[in-house]
Design a protein around this nucleic acid. Structure first.
Lengths: 254, 254
DNA sequence: GTCAATAATAATTTCGAGATTTTTGGGAAC
DNA sequence: GTTCCCAAAAATCTCGAAATTATTATTGAC
């Protein structure tokens, strides 16, 4: 019964790894991790749909019908349901009882509120991080800044391709900056807001180049943080975020 | 087929309302809402388990096995799964892939961090609320304060019974205070933290009387808010929360 | 006696079917 | 022309079973 189960049921329970390679029956345990390193189908579905929402492939307020999602991604109803529930917790999806799920709406008002709140949290977290940061923290910041700079330089020459990579490096840099803040809750809440901002950035910057000198802004934050000048770092970081808001608002309004 | 479905399947899909009254077959649409006004079984399960966690009936770090939950509450596996996923989003439950769900742990460190962060958010929200509050806001605050005072008075004479009611009034009062804050995000994040605090309060105060004069503290916040003295209100509210922390920490440490 | 390998057990994860609710569209009454 | 009602269709919600994974118990070797 073991052999039977292995062959026929690989597509039943196992995560994306096995699910996406069902052409032959070989039990090769090799990795074909279409979606990161998901350890369950729910996690794979969660990551997939989250990504689709973040990049705008699933537009705001799109009705998320199970039939559509089933055909598009191949997950079962219960799996999709739980993945969507997770996304509701991250405020990327809204749900109304008996009426299903929708991609969370966007608006200029929400973006302004989100940005304001994010600046409020980031300033506090950054101040604490600068106060508490040790050598390991400095190392993380330097490393993240270096990787971000590389990606930014690459964007100048081949601007279109590595949008996902830029988002990743950008998030890593910002999270490295506040990673020495000892408050778990502040970190957690900031993460939620940052992801929301990421979505607005992706929606706004579809097929657009970054016009202003983002690299210079990152450099200013980086240097202020390493110099342990909390006041300066907070001011520069706040201006950085609000300048981003300004650009995004204009795009959204158009 | 309609009649058949109505009789036999009342326990299948409908929310707690019908689920908990399956003795007779009358189609009386009356309400017997055991769990609030849940519109689906998932919502009923969510509210039920959340309440059990908040009051400590499900102790921190308890393993939440589906078999146990199924027998205890009568919900199906998928329903329970989604309810637990919602609770993960509220940080009342933790989950580890392939290893199931647990009631979120508690610790003095987490309580301290939670309280600090909550004070940080509450001060900002309260300041904004006082700045933007109109007559309707004042009305809500007066009403909530009045109801809370009544409940507090009742607690002095019959201290044990209405713990749930006190929590409800207390939450309504605190949320009324910041309800004029125009930031949806600040309100949302504050709600998450407040619920966490509620849990610590309930765990700490099991079978204990409130020793200090909580009513006087509420009164001070109330008067400062209505006087539109933001600085005073923030200071008093912060002291109120931190005094609560002090009591809870001692209980938790014992 | 300890440790590793293996079988048995228990728990989680996933899917598909069945049931209910919501939505939609046509038709009659006013 | 508008409104209301009812039937049909589509979508959501729920459950139980099947399958995989994790955990525990047992056996054998060193």
């Amino acid at each position: 019964m073991a052999g039977l189960a292995l062959a026929g049921a690989a597509t039943k329970n196992m995560p994306g790894v096995t699910r996406f390679m069902d052409t032959n029956v070989t039990s090769a345990p090799v990795a074909a991790p279409k979606v990161g390193t998901a350890r369950s189908l729910v996690e794979a579905a969660h990551e997939t749909i989250r990504h689709e929402i973040l990049i705008g492939a699933l537009a705001p307020e799109t009705k998320l019908r199970f039939e559509m999602l089933r055909k598009r991604y191949g997950f079962g109803a219960s799996t999709l349901r739980e993945a969507l529930t997770r996304l509701v917790g991250e405020a990327l999806v809204t749900s109304e009882e008996q009426k299903g799920f929708r991609v969370a709406p966007v608006s200029i008002e929400d973006l302004a509120d989100l940005t304001r709140t994010r600046v409020f949290l980031e300033k506090e977290a950054l101040r604490e991080s600068i106060r508490c940061g040790d050598d390991a923290w400095e190392g993380r910041v330097v490393a993240a800044y270096h990787r971000l700079s590389k990606t930014e330089a690459r964007l100048l020459t081949s601007p279109e391709i590595p949008q996902d990579e830029f988002e990743l490096r950008n998030r890593e840099f910002h999270q490295a900056l506040i990673s020495a803040c000892p408050s778990r809750w502040l970190n957690h809440l900031y993460g939620v807001l940052f992801q929301q901002s990421e979505r607005y950035r992706r929606i706004s910057l579809v097929n657009r180049k970054v016009s202003r000198d983002v690299h210079a802004e990152h450099k200013a934050i980086f240097e202020a943080a390493l110099a342990r000048d909390a006041d300066l770092a907070c001011r520069v970081a706040g201006e950085h975020i609000e300048r981003t808001l300004s650009v995004m608002s204009k795009v959204l309004a158009s």
